[in-house]
Amino acid sequence: MSIEKRMLVRELKLIAARPGDIFKPMWFTLLVISMVPLALAPDSQLLAEIGSAMIWVATLLALLLNTEHLFQSDFSDGVLEQWLFLDRPLAWLVGVKLIAHWLFNVLPLILITPVAGLMLSVSTEVLLALFITLLVATPALTCFSGLGAALTLGSSRSGILGVLVMMPLFVPVVILAAGVLIRATDGSDTLPLLALLGAFSVIAATLVPVAVSAAIRLNIGGSN
């Protein structure tokens, strides 16, 4: 079995050992979504108007929540150090880890958005656009919050810092996603914006693993 396949299997086994890690962010999203009508007004017209944006923000927060400690356990049990000795470039292994994380932890978050959409009476077309935007945008978000997690690995007081540091870099993603949702609401063409969003994700996926591997190297080198 190749190293990549073994990494994926290991991730799956870890999740099977602690399934709560997947469900907590999903639970979080649904809770945030159910707080919206309570805090605002149970007016379904209003909810439908802002619903898609709320779901987007809630999913973004949940994603940050479960990416915050992306490398923490691998760091403390020494797996990251083992990576340095493998005959693969570190950036490549980081890429595999990020893909695994996206598949097993982020994808479930996207899959529950239809439920959240029903709760906020978002129309089907907008919901479809929301779903596609999240699929296209989350790779970039996962990469950036992974970088935040890697940067703060060696610090004892990191807490939510990794997330805060990376938040400003999410701006283009959020703006473009909101543009797609607005266009979907009035039925105009969403493809050009989705293309830009996709471009951002592709660039993030090619370049960020290199930065993440530099961050991991410096944290492993400096902590002992």
Partner: peptide
Amino acid sequence: KQRLFIILGMVSGLGIAVGLVMYALSQNI
């Protein structure tokens, strides 16, 4: 071989991104 694959991967990633941006800019946004 590994290094070649990585460089090819990065170049094609950037190429895809440029293509997508070109397409988007040709539309009215």
